[in-house]
Every structure is written in structure tokens, then in C-alpha cells.
């Protein structure tokens, strides 16, 4: 027995020695030799496949990789459990090999405020929120925000012009500032163009399409003929409800009618437009500026209609379903937004 233990022990010792010997060899990775390579880590505090927000960010980074061969992107999905996000950020910041770390959402901003100053030689890009630059020490963080209230205002104007019942709805994922920024803009646009009643409901989660469908059905039942979904994966159920009730739904973040049309052209007919929040464009823009060396770190930028950060999707469904006078009004409103003639409400200051 003792002998066996001894053999086992020496075997374990041997293996660990071999492993230790291997360890220093790791940095000899050819990637590190190459000084021109820009290593990017994209930390997703959630999962890809939401057909809207994170997928849009991912798409933008894939454009970057296609156009700039020196950029390598490594995506980390931290999962939907918020308790693990802080640890995921700290681990990635400490252990990953990267030059730029990209992450998003307001839930992560506080964590980043604590982590970024610890790595002054690394760069951080955070989207859809701004870190609090008054804290100081955040000269290596660039924040990009979207005027979702402006884009949603356009969507509100659209449903206001299109609605026949004077009742429209919006399904939000959660009752949080970013989502409410969509909702105030939408409501303002809709009310200024003839809508009497805007039904606002929150699903309380991003991955329950059955609930999204049920909420939308309740709205259609209460007389709404357009429902705007701002609820990620939950919102997919809103489209099914629109199809079932033969009414309309407005997509969000990506051009969702075009995505859905690939497999369900009939359902896409019920999505005349989507409010685009062009996370993809903004990250592509940020990375190209980074490569040029012009990206303003230590600052936050707001991208609105003028900067191509937000807008309405104009696909074949939009063209077919929308009457010409509505299209003209939308263009006029868009111009007014560009010129600053219209001020849209916001929940942020």
C-alpha cells in the first residue's frame, strides 16, 4: 500500500514538474512577437444570439476584422447571471492578452470604473453607457452612447402617422434608464402625431418570448395596432403576436424584419420598420479611429441621427407598407432632428 502511494505521489510530482516546465514557454506564442497586431477582447455581459443588441456589437467587430487584418477579436460571453459579470470583467482584465477591451451596458460601467485604473497601459471602450469621468483616472476609457430617444422618437412619429386606432404599445425588457430612454422618445413622437394612448409594459426579463407574446396580445386586445418591442429575446414573441392578430410590430436595434424574412417572410410583413441602434457602426467607427490614433479616450461621445448612431430601417417592407406622405413626413422630421429644430425628451441629463 505504502509503495503504491509512493509511486502515485512521485507520478503526480513528475507531472506537475513537466507542467511547470511548460508554463514559461507559453509567451513564446508567435502572436506576441508581432508588434502590429491589435488584440481586442469583447466581453459580452450576456450572450450572443439576441438578434439585436449584442449581435449588433459582434457584427461591428466582425466588420473590423474583415477590413483590418491586424485586428484579432476574442469574444467572451459572461452569461446571463449578473452576479458573475464583475468577476468576468476582473478575470478578463487580469488574464487575457489584449490591447483593447470592449464591453457595454450600464450594468458594467461601475465595475469598469474600478477595473480600468488598475490597467493604465490598456485601453477600454464601453458602449451604451458612459463611465463617470469625474472620478478621474479614467483616461484610458472611451464611452459611446446612443441617442435612442431620437431614434425612438422617429419610431413614435411613424406609428403616430400610421395608427388607425390611436392606441399604440411598447414592450420594454426591464424598467431601467436605457429602456426608458427609448420609451420617452417613442411616446413623445407618437403623441405629437395623433396617438391618444401609449400602453407601456415591461416583461421583467430578456429571454421569455412567451411572456413577450402575451403582453403584446394584451395590448392588441386593448386596441393597439402597433407595438414597439425593446426587449431583446423576449421581443421575438411580440412579432409572433403581431402575426397572429394581423397587426404591426416595430423592431429594435437591428433591422429585424430582414433577419426574420429569411425563414418567415409572412411574419416579416408585420414589421414595417425597426428602430436601429447602430452599435455595429459605432464600434467599427471607434476601432477605425483607434487604429488611426484619433479615438478620444477619456471622453464620452453621443451618437444620434446626425452621426448615424440611430435611425429607422428602410427595407422593402417599409417601402411597401408605408404610404408616400408618411415617408415624406418621416424625412422631414429626420431633417428637423438633424437641424436641431426638435428637442426630444430624455431620461438622461
Amino acid at each position: 500500500m505504502k509503495q503504491k502511494l509512493l509511486v502515485l505521489f512521485s507520478f503526480v510530482l513528475l507531472v506537475s514538474m513537466v507542467l511547470v516546465a511548460c508554463a514559461p514557454a507559453a509567451p513564446a506564442d508567435p502572436v506576441d512577437e508581432d508588434e502590429d497586431v491589435i488584440r481586442v477582447v469583447h466581453l459580452v455581459n450576456g450572450v450572443l444570439g439576441d438578434k439585436s443588441f449584442f449581435d449588433s456589437a459582434d457584427r461591428g467587430l466582425r466588420w473590423v476584422v474583415d477590413d483590418f487584418p491586424q485586428v484579432q477579436v476574442n469574444t467572451i460571453e459572461a452569461g446571463i447571471d449578473p452576479a458573475r459579470w464583475q468577476a468576468a470583467l476582473e478575470d478578463a482584465a487580469a488574464n487575457e492578452e489584449y490591447d483593447v477591451m470592449i464591453l457595454g451596458t450600464f450594468q458594467m460601467s461601475e465595475f469598469l470604473e474600478r477595473v480600468a485604473p488598475q490597467y493604465p497601459d490598456k485601453y477600454f471602450i464601453i458602449y451604451d453607457v458612459s463611465v463617470d469621468y469625474d472620478l478621474g483616472n479614467l483616461d484610458n476609457v472611451y464611452s459611446v452612447l446612443y441617442k435612442q430617444n431620437e431614434g425612438s422618437y422617429l419610431a413614435g412619429v411613424y406609428v403616430g402617422l400610421m395608427s388607425e386606432t390611436g392606441v399604440v404599445g411598447v414592450v420594454g425588457g426591464q424598467d431601467i434608464p436605457v429602456i426608458n430612454d427609448f420609451i420617452v422618445g417613442y411616446e413623445q413622437g407618437a403623441r405629437e402625431h395623433g396617438v391618444e394612448s401609449v400602453i407601456v409594459q415591461y416583461a421583467g426579463g430578456w429571454n421569455d418570448p412567451a411572456r413577450g407574446k402575451e403582453l403584446a396580445l394584451a395590448m392588441y386586445q386593448q386596441g393597439a395596432d402597433f407595438v414597439f418591442q425593446v426587449a431583446g429575446g423576449t421581443g421575438v414573441g411580440v412579432f409572433q403576436a403581431a402575426q397572429e392578430m394581423d397587426t404591426f410590430a416595430i423592431g429594435v436595434d437591428s433591422d429585424q424584419a430582414v433577419i426574420i424574412a429569411e425563414t418567415d417572410p409572412d411574419q416579416a410583413e408585420h414589421i414595417p420598420t425597426s428602430m436601429l441602434k447602430n452599435v455595429d457602426n459605432s464600434l467599427y467607427r471607434a476601432m477605425s479611429m483607434f487604429i488611426e490614433g484619433t479615438l478620444p479616450f477619456g471622453e464620452a461621445e453621443f451618437l444620434g441621427v446626425a452621426e448615424g448612431g440611430v435611425g429607422l430601417a428602410r427595407n422593402e417592407y417599409y417601402e411597401r407598407i408605408t404610404p408616400d406622405e408618411v415617408k415624406e413626413t418621416i424625412e422631414q422630421v429626420e431633417q428637423d432632428l438633424l437641424d436641431g429644430n426638435i428637442v426630444v425628451d430624455t431620461v438622461f441629463n
Binding site: L48, G49, K51, E77
Partner: peptide, 8 residues
């Protein structure tokens, strides 16, 4: 796709 099976 990691989100849903709508492509099927």
C-alpha cells in the same frame, strides 16, 4: 445561432 431556432 446561440439565441433561437428561428432559422429552422
Amino acid at each position: 445561432d446561440k439565441g433561437n431556432s428561428q432559422s429552422l
